[in-house]
Design a protein around this nucleic acid. Sequence first.
DNA 1: CTGTATCCAATCCGATACTG
DNA 2: CAGTATCGGATTGGATACAG
Lengths: 134, 134
Amino acid sequence: MATSNTGVRTLLGSHRLPNPVPAGEYARCPATDVLRRVSDKWTLLLITLLGQRPYRFNELHRAVDGISQRMLTRTLRTLKSDGLVEREVFPTLPPSVEYRLTPLGVSLLEPLSALAGWAVDHHAEIEAARQRRT
Amino acid sequence: MATSNTGVRTLLGSHRLPNPVPAGEYARCPATDVLRRVSDKWTLLLITLLGQRPYRFNELHRAVDGISQRMLTRTLRTLKSDGLVEREVFPTLPPSVEYRLTPLGVSLLEPLSALAGWAVDHHAEIEAARQRRT
DNA sequence: CTGTATCCAATCCGATACTG
DNA sequence: CAGTATCGGATTGGATACAG
């Protein structure tokens, strides 16, 4: 299962990093960019929910306890502009809007799930380390 | 390779999320917690470098173009308190300090690498979606 | 060499009020 | 129902100066 790779595929796909890592390139590093996008407060949860089935706006609002309307809109807009989520408007009265993962969004579920799984498996160790507060 | 799992393992390991997701529990969701920690500006790069070999403080400072002394210290301290990195002081004159990944840190490389790989593979699609700016 | 301390700017996020 | 607009507090990160 584990490969012998101890590097992280980043900085345009190289396994060995240049030294020094150029500041200009790192600022646009795909891995860091994606990581930062996906790790804001609500994105992981919204991707998880939309990974199960499509949701309407207020349905998400009800499903996610504590999210503000502003943050729900903002997060969905960002996901859409990144091509991870698509938005379909049904011109009913009142209007209804459905959100669903795009194929690109679906493809993200697996690596994201792997990292989430690691977090679940090792969270106790991290907590223990924090308790030692050294 | 791909499983049929379309959920993300989160919220204490459940594959199906309760509805609504309780705000109090989500605030402590291990996956979100880990994702947010690992995605600050310099953490991914530092973990990547330390995944190759141990580094001394100034060696990291030189290797990472653009990082401030303050952020290098802060990021390493956080990684250490989370148990991902360990710090060894050699009482030479002047002192030298070596940082290396702990076994826990090493175990993070694989899922992090998977996500970084996804980012590298799909970054062009994300960029294209952003250009469409819809 | 390996840090701390201080200050400041930018961004993130929540609360609230309003709208087609 | 599905948003937008505005405000303000909290967090993040950079620059600079100082220290064991």
